[in-house]
Design a protein around this nucleic acid. Structure first.
Length: 319
DNA sequence: GGGTTTTTCCGCCACC
DNA sequence: CTGGTGGCGGAAAAAC
């Protein structure tokens, strides 16, 4: 089975979390698995001590030549998404790609790949916070900010830091099959595969405008009465306004509309019930205020890019 | 899944 | 004149 060498890049000023994901999946010995495991090296543009978040330093003897020579090259989040990758890094990434290596990015690492021109005309993703910036700086990238990761063959990109873990396990699955990937996932105590996109992790716009406490109060009241049938007219009465004024105030202080916001809150509330409770999906729908299960499934699907039952399965899965 | 009915939401405007 | 209010009509969206 192919394993080969994995090289992960270390930047000055980075957080060790993403590098930690990579070392956890590819760097730890797996004597319990009967396969030849990967050989991991941490590389830096300048070998030696690399300062990291927290005042510590990570010291490596490996430089970009090692990176360019690996079978799989992993680029974690860059520290500044407005800066261009250095010419030396661009060169190393292009050399690795030209040699046929797999190039993988986590979070804002996609900016380094894009800066090297490796993502031109390709589907790719990054952390949702950086989607607009990436689109602006590299318009030729076919960006999809709604997925956890994208496998485009020899180039793969992943969303926010933890989605890098999903992608690393996906790499193991490609190299060694689902049984081995599930074993690694079980060791790490994570789901072997998560359905759905990163939309599920984008904070809901709960904006409370202190200048309009009537709206804020009505929102709080709505959350406390989520299971009941709520209409704009009812909400407006809570806020002691006409529906017309309520819509206007609501839009100004939340940037959304009452029903859009309410539906989002109901979906949010359903997540906990699906993940930890045992109630059937139809009952969850009713408990969070959807008058029909079909409506619940429709809105859940739009918000989460997966179905309620698949979401629940992903939480229960053990591999 | 498509069609019908109901509700939401927003521009317009007269009115404090 | 500025700034908020709220009824009306109809396109758009949601519910059924």
């Amino acid at each position: 089975m192919p394993s080969g060498t994995v090289a992960v890049l270390a930047y000055p000023g980075m957080s060790v979390f993403e590098t930690g994901i990579v070392t956890e999946v590819f760097g730890l010995p797996r004597p319990e698995l009967d396969v030849a495991w990967y050989r991991l090296t941490v590389c830096a543009e300048r070998p030696g001590p690399v300062p990291v978040v927290g005042g510590a330093a990570l010291t490596t003897p490996y430089g970009l030549d090692e990176l360019a020579g690996a079978d799989t090259v992993i680029v974690p989040g860059v520290s500044d998404v407005r800066a261009d990758p250095s010419p030396a890094l661009v060169d190393a990434l292009r050399r690795a790609h030209a040699r046929g290596a797999r190039i993988v990015s986590i979070c804002s690492g996609a900016f380094a790949l894009a800066g090297a021109g490796l993502l031109d005309g390709r589907p790719a993703t990054t952390h949702w916070r950086y989607a607009a910036t990436l689109r602006r700086r590299y318009p030729r990238v076919l960006l999809d900010p709604d997925v956890l990761y994208i496998d485009d063959g020899e180039i793969m990109t992943s969303a926010g830091s933890a989605a890098g873990l999903d992608l690393c396990i996906h790499l193991v699955r490609r190299d060694h099959g689902p049984a081995i990937a599930n074993a690694v996932a079980r060791r790490l105590v994570v789901a072997p595969h998560r359905d759905g996109g990163q939309a599920q992790f984008v904070e809901a716009p709960v904006a409370e405008d202190p200048h309009d406490d009537r709206i804020a109060a009505s929102m709080a009241w709505a959350l406390a009465h989520l299971a009941e049938p709520l209409t704009v007219a009812v909400l407006a009465r809570q806020a002691r306004m006409s529906t017309r004024s309520y819509l206007r105030h609501f839009a100004r202080c939340s940037g959304s509309t009452p029903i859009r916001w309410l539906t989002g809150q109901r979906v949010q509330a359903s997540l906990a019930l699906l993940a930890t409770g045992g109630a059937p999906v139809d009952e969850v729908a009713a408990r969070v205020g959807f008058e029909s299960p079909a409506t619940f499934r429709y809105h859940f699907g739009r918000a989460m890019h997966t179905s309620p039952s698949a979401y629940r399965r992903a939480f229960r899965a053990t591999g």
